[in-house]
Structures are given as C-alpha cells and as structure tokens.
Design a protein around this nucleic acid. Sequence first.
DNA 1: AATGAATGAGACTTCATTCAT
DNA 2: GATGAATGAAGTCTCATTCAT
Lengths: 207, 207, 207, 207
Amino acid sequence: MNEDSKTELTIRQHRGARRRAKTRADLLAAARKVFAKKGYHDASILDITEAADVGVGTFYLHFADKDEAFNTLIDEVFHILEEQVITEVRSHEAITLTVTVHSIFRHAYAQRDLFSIALASGAQVSRTIRVEDTIAGGLIRVFEQVPQPEDLQGYDIQLLARLVTGVIAQGIIWWFDQDEPGPEEMANNVLALLAHGLPASLFTHNN
Amino acid sequence: MNEDSKTELTIRQHRGARRRAKTRADLLAAARKVFAKKGYHDASILDITEAADVGVGTFYLHFADKDEAFNTLIDEVFHILEEQVITEVRSHEAITLTVTVHSIFRHAYAQRDLFSIALASGAQVSRTIRVEDTIAGGLIRVFEQVPQPEDLQGYDIQLLARLVTGVIAQGIIWWFDQDEPGPEEMANNVLALLAHGLPASLFTHNN
Amino acid sequence: MNEDSKTELTIRQHRGARRRAKTRADLLAAARKVFAKKGYHDASILDITEAADVGVGTFYLHFADKDEAFNTLIDEVFHILEEQVITEVRSHEAITLTVTVHSIFRHAYAQRDLFSIALASGAQVSRTIRVEDTIAGGLIRVFEQVPQPEDLQGYDIQLLARLVTGVIAQGIIWWFDQDEPGPEEMANNVLALLAHGLPASLFTHNN
Amino acid sequence: MNEDSKTELTIRQHRGARRRAKTRADLLAAARKVFAKKGYHDASILDITEAADVGVGTFYLHFADKDEAFNTLIDEVFHILEEQVITEVRSHEAITLTVTVHSIFRHAYAQRDLFSIALASGAQVSRTIRVEDTIAGGLIRVFEQVPQPEDLQGYDIQLLARLVTGVIAQGIIWWFDQDEPGPEEMANNVLALLAHGLPASLFTHNN
DNA sequence: AATGAATGAGACTTCATTCAT
DNA sequence: GATGAATGAAGTCTCATTCAT
C-alpha cells in the first residue's frame, strides 16, 4: 500500500464517518420532532425514519432501540443544560439558587419541546435517568455549598431537593400547553415562592 | 306472574347483579395491581384479566377499553380523595393549607400505589383528567378563601397553584420508590417549605 | 295423582307450550328483521335476542345456532311459498308458467325482505338449501307436465330450469333496492322475456 | 455518487421491487384459492398468508384489509373480462348478443373459480362493485346499439338487462358445482333461451 | 453504511355458546 | 323455560426488529 492509497483510505473513512454522523444527527433531530409531537409511546420507529428521510433499517445502525434513541436525546440535552448552567453559575461570584434557577429555566425554555416530553414520559421509559434526578442532583450541589450549613439543619436534603425539583418541573410542564410567561418571569415566580413561601394567612385561622 | 315468582325473579336479578358487581370489583382491583406494577402502557388486558382470574372477554363486559378501566380507577380514588379532604377540612374551623396538605398526604399515602402511577402515567392516557388538575383545583379553592386576599396580590393564582401542586406531587412520587417518611412528616416537610421558603443564604452571596 | 292435578298439569303444559311457541315466534320475527337489516353475517345472536326482547340464552333453547334460525326462517317462507303457489296454480285449469311465475312474484314481493336476503346470503350459509334450488325444483315440475313433451326435447331440463330461475331470482333481487315495478308487472316483464326471447335484431348483423 | 453506484442503486431498487411484486402476486394467487375454497367470509387473513407462504404482517404491506384484497382480485379479473370481451366483440362486424354472450362465458369459464365466488359473495363485501352491475352495464351497451331501436320499445332496458344478467350469472354459478357443459355449449343454451324463449305450450292451457 | 421487504409475536376485540341460578 | 354473566377461541392488525441485497 502506497502513501496515496493510505491518504485516500483516510479520506474515505472521514467521508464515511462524516456521513454516518450526519445520518445520526438527522435521526436525532427527527426523533426529537416526533417525540415532541406524538409523545414517547405513540412515536414509532417508522415515524422517526420517515421524518429523517432514511430507511427503517438505518435506525438500527445507530440505536439499539427506541429507548436508546430517547435516552440519547435526553442525555444530550441534559449534558448541555448541565454544562451551560455550570458555566453560567461559575461566571457569578457565588453559586446561588437565584442564578441556578434562572439558568435552568432559561435553558429549559429554549428546549421546552423536549423537556416537557421528557417530564411527561419519563416514567414510561425503562432505563431513563429520570429528568428529575438530574435537576435534583444539581440542586443538592447548590445546597451543599450553602455558606451557613446550619441553615439547612433539620432538613432532609434529598427530599428537599426533590420537592424543589417538583416546583421547577411543574414550571417547565406549564410550558407544555402555553408559552407564557417567559423564562425570566417564570424563574421569578418560582424564586418568590421558594424564598418567602406562601402568605402566612393561608396557614392559620382567619378570625 | 304471582307474588312468589316475582320474589324469585328479584332474588335472581340480585344474584346476577351481585356476581356482576363482584367481577367488576375484582377487575378493578386487578387493574390497580397491574397498573401499579407495570405502568399504564405495559399493562395488557390479558395481564388484568389473569390477575382478576376471569376470562379475557369478561373485561369488555365491564369496560370499553384499557383507558376506561384506568380512568374509572383514577376517578374512583379521586372522588374519595376529594370527599375525604373536603370532609376533613370542614371539620376544622377554617380551611387552611395546613389541614389541606395533611389531608391530601394522608389519603395519598394510603393509596400511594395508584397515586404514583396516576402521576407518572397521566400524560399518556388520552381522556384522563390529569391528577395534577384536581390537586391544583383544590388548592385554588383554598387560595380563594384566604382571609386577606391582598396577601396574594401580584401572584398568578393559576401558576402558583400549579407550582405548589408540583411540590405535593413530588412528595407523592417520592413514595413510588420508598415508604419513608410517612404522610404526617411528609406534610410537615412540604408545609415548612411552603410556609417559610428556603434559607435566605441560598439566594445571596456568601462573602 | 288425581284428576284435578292431571288437568292442571295439562293446562300448565299447554301454557308452557303456548309460551314456548310465542317466544319462538318472537325470535323468528326478530331474526327476520335483523337479517333483513344487517345481512346474514353481520347479524349477531345478541342482535336477534335484543330485538326479540328475550335473554341471549333463550335463543339456544329454540335453535342450535344462527344457521338453524336462518334456515328455519327460509324454510318456513318457502313452505308457505310452495303451498301458496301450488294452491294457486291448482285453482287454474292447467299448470302453466304464466300462472306459476305470477304466483311466485306475488308471494316473493310480499316477503321481499327475506327473499332478497336469502338470495344474497344463500351461498354464505353452509347447510342452507339454496333458495334457487327450490325455485328450480318447482320449475322442473312445471316443465315435466308440459302437454307436448317433445317441445322440450334437446333441452337440458336441469340447466334450463336453472337459467329461468336466474331470471326470476334477479327479478326478486331487483326489489332489494327498489319497490317498483310491483309483482304483476315484474311477472309480465319476465314472462315476456321467457315467452318470446329478445328481439332478433340483437342477435344478428345489422347491415 | 458516481455512475457505478447509480447503476447499483437502480439494480437494488429493481430487485426490491421485483421481490415485492412477486410477494403481492403470491398473495393474490393465494387469496383467490382461499376465497374460492372457503368463500369470502370464512377466509381468514391467516389462511391467505399461509397459502402464500408469507408472514401475516406481509399481507398488510400489500393490502389494507381483506376487502381490499378481494376487490383487487375481482377488479383485476373484471378488467381483463371487459377488455377481452370488448376486443373480441370488436373483431366482429357487429356487436351482437351472440358474440357477447359467447365471449363472456368463454372468459368466465376460464376464471370460474373467482367468478362463482364473486357472484356468490358479492353482496357480502361492502365496497365491491357488484359483478352483476358490470355484466348488466355491458348488456345495456349492446342493447343501445341495436339496429332497430323500436324493437326494444316498451321494455324497461335497465330491468331487462338485469334479467338477462340473471340468466348469464346463473350459467356461471352452475359451474360452481360442475364443469359441464363447457362455455360454448353453455352460451348456446343461454342464447337459445334468450332468442326464442320457452315453448309456447308452457304458457298455455293444455286441452 | 444504507435500504426496505418481510417477519411474527403480541395486543385488542368480538361473539357464539355455556351454565349456574 | 328463561336468563344473562362469563368464557375463550379466533380473527384483525401493528410495529419493533432482522437480513438479503
């Protein structure tokens, strides 16, 4: 084998790899569209491959099954969320809930098609790392860096993180049906609730 | 037809009706077990009828399809929840969140198999009144009876109810995997969060 | 057993027998209505028993299965047809096709709901004596009584009877969709065709 | 993509298409056999796919349901019949019933398995263009070209065509059970009846 | 690597028939 | 004799997955 053919081989492999990557990206984009439109269960492989304009068989060259495609999609979006939130939070002097929550909603809003489907279908998909776990995990990290740890004494951190996750998730699910309010206002609503709680009069007698 | 045969007929009908009611109850109990174990989508009619120890066809004598059985189940539990919560809340001098939340968790804990499945599968079932809607609706009623309405000025009541629902739902979903803490402690955790919010230090700089 | 109870028994049996006969008649009337409306295959036992306002099980006290009910219905109508045609034909001086065909159409028109369904579904029902057989049989009897048997020499009587049956059957099927023309005119049309055939010019060149 | 791979692609497509076409043809042949043997209603999809030696699902790759397969079959045969009869009739100097009837029987005999089933099951299949309609339509066209239209005055052409169709159909149904007589003799029998009618003595008194 | 025809397990649903009351 | 709840065989149809090309 001479230099030339080696080079050619490399190029050919590159071409193949590029093409492969392109097909995979097409499939993921199509999957996202289809999942968002039909929900996890009603989306068929055929729906996805048709949307991606590839043959049915091609799907299986890239994903083992529907679960894997879905999880890949979710993971991808989540890694981006994590990275972005981490970057954004680091650019501030301190990791605060305020910054974190704003960052989460900003990102989630941009990707609300996938997020709402992930939150709605999560429990249906066997192997999925539940979306809530990721959010809860991020919150726990914030909680652990609280300047006065004694403030959280008496709280079950795990449970607390979950409950807060519930508020955030519900905010995202809200966008399932409507686009208003936008991410900043949504974050403000959530933060107001989380910071001060509800009016005391809701908890006590009224006479 | 004489009196005797009339009586006999009545008894006969009663017997038939009783048998029918029993079968229906068996089916609902089986459906509940199966849905809780497999989730809505992976539960098949055959799973349910086998668990109920009746023939496949019998299912269709009582329900039009899987959806109807699921909805019946959910509706049933929800009507009981609503009634119970309303009764319990009324027995107190005032409708407060404290009482409401305790009542919800107490009931939901007792029925946690169904509740977690309802919260997890809700979006999958076409006609279902989403569980969250019911909870949010109840909360709105509480909000509207707040003694000082000015306390809630500036809040979007609908959204607020949803966010609070998120906390409560997440508390119930927590029981999907574990039984601890029990309903009273769970309610206390949730109420603490809702009453005072999180420590201020989580929202501010730490220098 | 004394005379009285014997008498009572007889009466009771009579009552039972009468009731039984009534139920059976109800079922047959219902079956006729349902078959006419839905056709043989789409008619279900439940359809019939509901129309007859009896329990499903009752059907099986009177008929072995759907086939038997259908055949009974057909047979009944046919025996009446046969009897009526025979009586009517006998009242004339000679058995002629003219009289026979008129008689058939008159009777078939009165029962056209059943006849059309019998002619349309006949082949679907396994054991059915095909309606056409009955008609053809009647025709053969007429043919055999022809005053100058030599007139029919060279004909395959069986086949001929069948072909003529085809014309008659088609006349009855015509009433499947419409009620016009009535039986007498229909008979005249058929007889015209059978008596003289079609215009010769249809069979020959036209130059 | 270079010339070579284009060619290859073409071949590949051709291969796939050829396989597909073969499977479809197998299915139609099997359907024909099964329908002829069991009748429309008693033929199941499984019967057909087993006869065609393909998987159940394959059936649905080619036909939406049983109806569509049946109609396809009927349509196919009918188009061939129509074309063939038209061609054959045109090759003669004039369109006469003689030629038409011979042509119909010749073709119907060759396809008698399908024809008898089509004539027997026609009314059972929802969307089917009833076979009789096609025959009657053809006859009407012949009638309309009769050289002396006054010959048909006083006839209801529609009804007449139907009645004649009845004769022809009955001739074809005759072959349901037996193969004799062949098409030419059958046509002669039918034409004899249609040309001259039955002996006058059948219609009149015998003294 | 891509294709798409074929596969068949499995889910749903209907309905003739039985049988305890 | 009448009833109707229950049965389950049998049929329809879908769709994830395979594999020859």
